[in-house]
C-alpha cells in the first residue's frame, strides 16, 4: 500500500504490531517522499516456525518420525524462499537436521527405506540454493545444512562393536554424487574467485594500507574461508564413501 507522506525521515521503519504492517519512507526523484508499507508478519512467522521446528528436531530426533516427511515437504521450498534471507537460513539448518533425524530412524530400524526418498530432494534443493545464493550468510547456512546431510549419510551404516564406521546405507547413486560434487566444486571455485577479487582490490587501493588495514581485509575474507571450510573439508571424504557405484 502506498500513501502520501508528509516530510519524514527517509529510511525510518515504523512497525504496527496490531496489523503486522511495516512501513518506511523512501525518497524518489523530484524530492518527493513515498511511504511503502508491507506486511512482514507472515514472513517473520515462517522464520520463527522454522527455528522452532529445528529445536524440536534437535531435541527429539527420530522420535519425530511421523512428522519428518510432512515437515520436509514444507521446509524444502523455504530453502530458496526469495523474500527473506533469514527464512532461507533457518530452513537450510532445519532441512539438514530433519534429514539427519530420518537417518536416525533408519538406524533404529536397520532399514534405509525411510530416509532414502528424502535424500535427493534435500540434497538437490540445498545444492541449487547454494549455487544461486547471492548473500554470504544464507550461503554458509546452506553449506552447513548440506554438511549435516552428508555427515548423516556417511554415518548411516552405524558403528561396529569395535567402534568402526560401517558402510553407508543411505547413499547417493553415482550420478547424484557426481552432480553434488560438481556443484560443490563450482561453489568453492566461485568462493576462491570472490576472495581473489577482494584481495586484489585491497592491494590496488591507494586508500588502504597493508599493515594498518589488514584486519579489514581479514574480516572481509572470513566469510569465504568459513564457507569453504564448511563445504570442502567435511564433504570430500563422506561423498567419496557414500555413493554406491
Amino acid at each position: 500500500m502506498t500513501e502520501v507522506a508528509g516530510r519524514e525521515e527517509t529510511g525510518s521503519v515504523v512497525h504496527d504490531e496490531e496489523t503486522g504492517l511495516q512501513s518506511t519512507i523512501v525518497e524518489v526523484r523530484g524530492g518527493s517522499q513515498i511511504r511503502f508499507t508491507m506486511n512482514t508478519t507472515k514472513v517473520l512467522e515462517k522464520q520463527l516456525a522454522c527455528q522452532t521446528l529445528f529445536e524440536y528436531v534437535d531435541a527429539l530426533g527420530p522420535h519425530l518420525a511421523a512428522f519428518i516427511g510432512p515437515a520436509l515437504e514444507k521446509v524444502l521450498p523455504l530453502v530458496i524462499f526469495k523474500y527473506s534471507e533469514q527464512v532461507r537460513n533457518s530452513a537450510s539448518f532445519a532441512c539438514g537436521k530433519l534429514f539427519s533425524a530420518a537417518v536416525e530412524v533408519c538406524k533404529a530400524n536397520a532399514n534405509n527405506q525411510f530416509a532414502m526418498p528424502f535424500l535427493w530432494p534435500c540434497a538437490d534443493t540445498l545444492v541449487k540454493g547454494l549455487k544461486g545464493e547471492q548473500h554470504a550468510e544464507p550461503r554458509s547456512c546452506m553449506a552447513e545444512g548440506l554438511k549435516d546431510l552428508l555427515q548423516a549419510c556417511f554415518e548411516s551404516g552405524g558403528k561396529s562393536a569395535t567402534g568402526v564406521l560401517q558402510a553407508s546405507t543411505v547413499a547417493f547413486t553415482g550420478e547424484q554424487a557426481e552432480a553434488v560434487a560438481t556443484a560443490l566444486v563450482e561453489v568453492a571455485q566461485a568462493s576462491i574467485e570472490r576472495r581473489g577479487k577482494k584481495m586484489a582490490a585491497f592491494e590496488a587501493s591507494d586508500e588502504l594500507e597493508g599493515d594498518q588495514d589488514a584486519e579489514r581485509l581479514e574480516e572481509e575474507l572470513e566469510e569465504e574461508v568459513r564457507l569453504r571450510s564448511m563445504e570442502v573439508r567435511p564433504w570430500c571424504v563422506p561423498l567419496l564413501s557414500i555413493h554406491k557405484s
Partner: peptide, 19 residues
C-alpha cells in the same frame, strides 16, 4: 511425543502459508 500432534500442525501450516 504425545504432545507432538498438538504442537506441530500449526508450525507446519505456517511454514506452508503461501506468500
Amino acid at each position: 511425543v504425545t504432545f507432538l500432534p498438538t504442537v506441530l500442525p500449526p508450525l507446519l501450516h505456517t511454514l506452508g502459508v503461501e506468500v
